[in-house]
Design a protein around this nucleic acid. Structure first.
Lengths: 228, 228
DNA sequence: ACAAAAAATGCTGCATACAGAATACAAAAC
DNA sequence: GTTTTGTATTCTGTATGCAGCATTTTTTGT
């Protein structure tokens, strides 16, 4: 099952305009997932002919999707030689985490100012669910909820540009963090940090939330530095 | 003269491989400039047929360039209805400046740590040249050098991800800042801030440089807030 | 047998062609 | 006069074809 169809996702059957997704759009998501999940590993060349045939799509929308991903920084365009999946060095990852840290600190500050109580409650709900997954040892769901929480806090900051930049970096790092399988004690520490985060958010304690978010990401680096 | 050729820019005539730029790449730069300089104003639809004919290019590379710019956030893709130049609200601009401020503060810190003396000297040279243009009343060159200085400081930070994010936001804002024609006294204040920046950089005073860069951008907002 | 040149293959880059959707316009009905 | 419906045109979305560059294989000369 590797065929692509633009009708794949049907939104809720309720009224309102039905989504008409274009093929190149669908391809962007699909290729992004393939890169993140390692189906396309760093350094892999994206053969237009072969890849297109594999996905059941012609070269035109495929090329458009690749250009989009190039601007996102997931692939690299080599003139006259096509596109390859970008490879990140340890320094690259460290650089990204440094920026991400700064952005999340900002997000924490803004979120404390701008978030609605309902919004904070939603983050709390995500957190509780994540803790449940943690206790159940469900690593995949834990990671996904983890990402969602960070994204949710950024959303609470109500700053579109911040959300954009954060999203780009988070996407680039997903491939890496997926690999970061820390041991049980580090994992427990990460969960504890999350608990602190939520508490600070609920107290709307800017300084504290900022500090915890920053510390959390520096620790993330400690956890993955060898894996890169 | 609106024709596009991929041979338009010939790098320094010295030996070495001659640049073979792809048409879609050239188009990205060209369209970006057109948007920044207002040839394509916000809300304008990018008609593929018309625009392609005007530039002497077929639709295929044009579409690829548009997808790239969409990922950069300069244009918006409306399914089945093409692309339009993105329109920024006052809040959007404020949001971008907020993030840009945070990024430049970070850049200042990192630059003080990582920059070489030669690198700092280059920024000083740019600054002196900018002051010269200021005194000559050459607004356009002043603006260009201004941007270059900010970019140069970010470069000194030696953080690729930071440079990426900063570049995206700076590009998005270029269109706005181009409009921001402040009065003589504000202009003088901006130049004075720049002088402070360079001094702090030469002293490698992290805290000071960060502070000035942050203040500088907040003032930039004061200068353009009415123009948006 | 080895190296250099030449041919051949495969892939990218661009243009064009075709199908389907959206919009604009016009005619008809209320 | 206003609204609605059918039709025509225009533009987007996708596929395909062709030319040029890169790379690999073969051939030729020493």
């Amino acid at each position: 099952m590797n065929e692509i169809t633009s009708l794949e996702r049907r939104p809720d059957g309720g009224p309102g305009p039905i989504r008409r997704t274009a093929l190149h759009d669908t391809l962007v998501s699909h290729l992004r997932d393939m890169i993140i999940e390692g189906d396309l590993s760093p350094g892999t060349r994206l053969h237009e002919g072969q890849l297109g045939e594999q996905l059941g799509v012609s070269r035109t929308p495929l090329r458009e999707a690749i250009k989009y991903l190039a601007s996102e920084g997931l692939v690299e365009l080599v003139p006259s030689r096509g596109a390859v999946v970008k490879r990140f060095s340890a320094k690259d990852v460290h650089d990204m985490l440094t920026v991400l840290q700064t952005l999340e600190e900002l997000a924490g500050k803004l979120a404390c100012e701008a978030a609605s109580d309902a919004g904070i409650a939603e983050v709390r709900a995500l957190h509780d669910e994540m803790v449940r997954r943690y206790k159940a040892g469900d690593r995949l769901q834990y990671y996904k909820l983890n990402q969602q929480i960070h994204s949710a806090i950024v959303q609470l900051a109500a700053n579109a540009a911040l959300a954009d930049m954060h999203g780009v970096l988070q996407t680039r790092l997903k491939r890496i963090r997926f690999i970061g399988h820390e041991g049980p004690e580090k994992w427990a520490a990460a969960v504890a940090e999350h608990e602190e985060m939520i508490a600070a958010l609920e107290a709307r304690d800017k300084a504290k939330l900022s500090e915890v978010l920053g510390r959390h990401l520096m620790n993330a680096w400690e956890r993955v530095r060898d894996a890169v």
